[in-house]
């Protein structure tokens, strides 16, 4: 099972903060976006169009990163911390 997290503006688009997805084998980011598209087509498009940053296990990742069972994937809109 993998955990998928959505932050800030993406929570409203995905209509959730977190997902738990069962996977049998490692999957690509494209495959994950297909899975997410089934429940949130707009979120799937955003991932496919590379409009968000991605982290896997709290490290920055990209569309080529392979996702393994147990991973925590997060979709991150542009940061705006500071002041």
């Amino acid at each position: 099972m993998i955990t998928v997290k959505f932050f800030a503006s993406l929570k409203a688009i995905a209509e959730r903060e977190e997902d738990h997805i069962e996977i049998e084998n490692s999957i690509s980011m494209d495959q994950l976006s297909d899975i997410i598209s089934k429940t949130s087509p707009k979120m799937g498009d955003i991932i496919r169009d590379k409009k968000v940053m991605i982290s896997v296990n709290q490290e920055m990742a990209d569309s080529d990163t392979i996702i393994h069972d147990g991973d925590e994937v997060a979709f991150l809109p542009p940061f705006s911390g500071g002041s």
Binding site: S80, G81, G82
Partner: peptide, 23 residues
């Protein structure tokens, strides 16, 4: 910090709430 830290700001104005995308 602004460039690499996953922190997000939401502003509330008279027009509603908006997540800030660029600072």
């Amino acid at each position: 910090l602004k460039r690499v830290t996953p922190i997000w700001k939401r502003e509330t104005t008279s027009k509603g709430e908006v997540w800030v995308q660029d600072t």
